[in-house]
Nucleic acid binder design. Structure first.
Length: 255
DNA sequence: ATGGTGGATGGTCCA
């Protein structure tokens, strides 16, 4: 089973890249973030033509998540707990056979100490309780998406430069660790331990060419599920194209 | 401290 996660930064602008990439990689499940589109306007037909069933939870201009799957998901849940409304369409979950999949777009957080940062930490706390509940219910569980947090020094281009700033602050990393401690494994780190493997590069300052990046897009799984990983990689190819998303897709294959 | 770029939008906000 091949599962991918990709922050596309607008499904409309990235649709051609997404269709080409999916046709090449042929994932069974694709978790998308930052679709930036209301559900009625999602490009269903183009993706259905590739054989995918689609579940969406979007809003105008900002945020928005979706899951594409080659067989329909069951028990789809939108949002964390009871939250509704704009600014919060960041989570969609569903069951692919006996695998529970949770797709998240964790808030960016602006700058450390800002209102947005406080919101990010609150949101992470809410995700922790959500995931504790999911973990209690599902033996095979995947949490994936744009976490907007680089877990450790290997996941940033220059720890001395960025530790303590957004995506790399102690409070964010502690909150992320608390979510992991509900019973999940960073599948990428189960396979690769080297530094400098990033999933996001700022559009500015030729950051991609200079590999000034961060590993903030993740696939986490419950232990038995993580044990079944065959390969996991970050696909930098789409980031090299004209008009790319600033994020690269992450792909995992499970036996 | 600022600004560098890109998406949605039609002013700025967000990342």
């Amino acid at each position: 089973m091949i599962l991918a996660t990709w922050n596309v930064n607008s499904i409309n602008t990235r649709l051609t890249h997404l269709l080409d990439w999916i046709s090449f990689v042929k994932p069974n499940v694709v978790c998308l973030q930052e679709t930036k589109i209301v559900d009625e306007k999602f490009p269903f037909s183009e993706l259905e033509a590739l054989g995918y069933s689609i579940q969406v939870y979007g809003e105008k201009s900002y945020n928005g998540v979706a899951i594409l799957s080659d067989k329909p998901l069951s028990n789809v849940v939108r949002g964390l707990h009871q939250e509704v409304g704009p600014g919060s369409r960041r989570t969609i979950a569903g069951s692919y056979g006996d695998i529970r999949i949770v797709d998240v777009y964790i808030p960016n957080g602006g700058e450390v100490g800002s209102d947005k940062y406080a919101y990010k930490l609150e949101w992470l706390s809410s995700l922790q309780s959500y995931m504790a509940n999911e973990r209690a219910k599902h033996e095979n569980l995947v949490l994936c998406g744009d976490f907007n947090i680089a877990p450790d020094d290997r996941d940033v281009y220059d720890p001395k430069e960025v530790n303590g700033t957004i995506m790399c602050s102690e409070a964010e990393r502690n909150a992320l660790e608390a979510i992991r401690a509900t019973g999940l494994v960073d599948v990428f780190r189960k396979v690769h331990d080297q530094a400098g493997l990033f999933s996001w590069w700022d559009y500015r300052m030729n950051a991609f060419r200079r590999n000034i990046g961060f590993r903030i897009d993740h696939i986490w799984a419950s232990p038995l599920m993580a044990d079944k990983v065959k390969t996991i990689y970050i696909d930098r190819e789409p980031r090299k194209l004209e008009q790319p998303s600033d994020h690269a897709p992450v792909v995992a294959e499970f036996l």
